[in-house]
Each structure stands twice: as structure tokens, then as C-alpha cells.
Design a binder for these strands. Structure first.
Lengths: 156, 156
DNA sequence: CTTGTGGCCGAATAAAATTCGGCGAAATTG
DNA sequence: CAATTTCGCCGAATTTTATTCGGCCACAAG
């Protein structure tokens, strides 16, 4: 089953990725179609998992999550880059992203915690528990200028 | 004006960050309150900008965005870390994140493009345009195991 | 004690989502 | 080429939901 998105699908995605809670009626107006037709398209995009979910962006500071860090992780298995380690990393709620990367290191993860001591605890208690992890290199974020996951959607 | 969130606010945030499109009626049931009261709380969380927005997560592959990279950027102005450069970087639609980081480099940015050639184009045409950028160090993502922006919200 | 403030409830109303029968274009089949 | 199926869309009917608003209660300030 091949996924093909037409111009209107892309228009819809473009609108709802910026505002997930736009009313279906308004969305229909924007793409100049009947609400029922648009709803049908959105449902199909959900089924095809082009739409992966709807999330609310929350200010991390408001819920006392002040620390953000990126950690490069090297594994002992060498170039194999254990998927087991990846799974364990991904299971940690503080870990927002786990990427398998090119280069000497194996993974790059993005971690958000309450403060520096909880980051330390995470590294000592959680990362050390993962056998394949041989070394880490941590980059602390001092200030975030921009942070969004909106992606570029082609016109056509 | 100090922001204080009570237990129910945190419950609400926890629910809606995982599912922005839950109906207000269902949300009210979950926190055991009247729909009108919950709506009032949500509106206030929006006003206080604890809630920063509602977004739809879209599969990047479905819209032909296959390349993901992290780029460390060093600036010539030294430790100053020009906010001008930060602003210019943040203005690029391919750039999803701009972080000011501790260490030798100044910025870490997260970039998503269609493919490797469009990443090259971005670096050649856009990054080079920014005068303060003196050098870059790019990390290519081969595979993403986890990617979410959900943050940990305390129980209380 | 009185006055205000804030948050909540619940019913009434307005708006929205959702369903569904039918239509027409395009593709498929015999 | 005609018959048939499929698909996406429309639009009205229906159901569900959001939203408004008056009133109530608890708490705090005067």
C-alpha cells in the first residue's frame, strides 16, 4: 500500500500541524470543501498514520522542567549500535529523543529533567544500568531560542 | 504575577499533552469536574501561556522530509554568542531547534530537510550568509528511535 | 459582620462533529 | 462500448460538544 498525498491533503496537514484544534468547519472553509469531505480525509490520514497524533505544547518552565541536555552515547559493541540499548533509552520518560547517528558515537539523545541534579541521577542510575553504554558526552543547553517540531510540507 | 498550578491543572496538562483533541466533556470526566469548570481552567492555562499551542504530529517521511541533522555552530564573536545569529537561524523553516549551549561551540541546531542535497544547500546558502558563523560540525541522523516533545509533569 | 473574589456547578443555548443517502467522475470489467 | 464498481464528495439530519451565564459556596480582606 503506497501512500500518496494530493495537494489538498498537504494543505490540510499544513493547517493542522500549526493548529491541531482548528474546527473541522473552519478547516473545510480553508480548503474550500464540505466539512464531511474534510473529516473523511483527516480520518484517512490518521489511519495511514501520516498523522501520528495531536499534542499540546506545554511550557517546560511552568512545570518545573528547567534542564535540557543532549547526550552522545558510545557503546561497547562497537559499530553494531545495540537496538537493545536504544529500546532501554527510549523507555526513559526524561528521554525525548533517541537518534542513531553517523560517526564515532552511536546515539544522540535529548533529555529533559527538572534540574542538574536530576540529570546527574539519570546518568548515574539509569544510563549506567544499560550494559552497552560505554561512554557519554553531555552538552548542556543554556537557553533555547527556538523549539518546534513543525516540518516543512511541500505545496504540491 | 506568579504562576501556580494546582494538582488538577497538572492532571489536565498531563492528559492534553498526550491527546490535544480529547473532548472537553471527557477531560472533565477524567478530572471529575464539570465541563464548564475545566474549560475555564484550560482557557486560563492558555492565557498564562502554560499551554503554548496545539500541534499535529506528522510523519516526516510521508511528506518527503527524510533528512535529519544536528549542527554545532561556532561563532567568530567568541563567547558573546551573537543573538543576531540566533535570530537568523531561528528564522529558517528547516531549523526546528536553536539552542544556546555550554562549551566551545555556541549553538546547537536541529535541522530537517528533504534530503542530503537540500541540507548541503542550506549550509552553503543559508548558514554561510550569517556573518558570525565561523564553523559548523554536523551530525547526521541515520535512524530515529524515539522523537517526542512530551515533558514530565509532576503529580503534585 | 460585610463585602468581595474566585472557582465551581448545572442548565440553556449555540456551535460543531458526525452520519448517511445519494450523486457524479473515473476506473475497471466483460 | 456499455455495464459496473469504486471513490470522493456533497449537504441535510442528527448527535454530540463547546460555550455561556446565573447562582452558589468558601475563603479572604476590610
Amino acid at each position: 500500500m503506497e501512500i500518496t498525498l494530493d495537494k489538498i491533503d498537504l494543505q490540510i496537514l499544513n493547517i493542522i500541524q500549526a493548529n491541531a484544534k482548528i474546527s473541522n468547519a473552519d478547516l473545510a472553509k480553508e480548503v474550500k470543501m464540505a466539512p464531511s469531505a474534510v473529516l473523511e480525509r483527516v480520518r484517512k490520514l490518521e489511519q495511514k498514520e501520516v498523522i501520528k497524533g495531536y499534542t499540546t505544547q506545554i511550557d517546560p518552565l511552568a512545570v518545573k522542567q528547567t534542564m535540557l541536555a543532549f547526550i552522545f552515547i558510545r557503546t561497547s559493541v562497537g559499530f553494531a549500535c545495540s537496538t537493545n540499548a536504544a529500546t532501554l533509552l527510549a523507555a526513559l520518560p526524561e528521554v525525548q529523543e533517541v537518534h542513531h547517528i553517523a560517526g564515532e558515537d552511536c546515539f544522540l539523545i535529548k533529555v529533559r529533567t527538572a534540574d542538574s541534579s536530576s540529570l546527574m541521577r539519570l546518568m548515574r542510575d539509569e544510563l549506567r544500568k544499560i550494559p552497552e553504554v560505554s561512554s557519554t558526552k553531555t552538552t548542556i543547553v543554556l537557553e533555547t531560542v527556538k523549539e518546534q517540531q513543525q516540518i516543512i510540507i511541500p505545496e504540491k
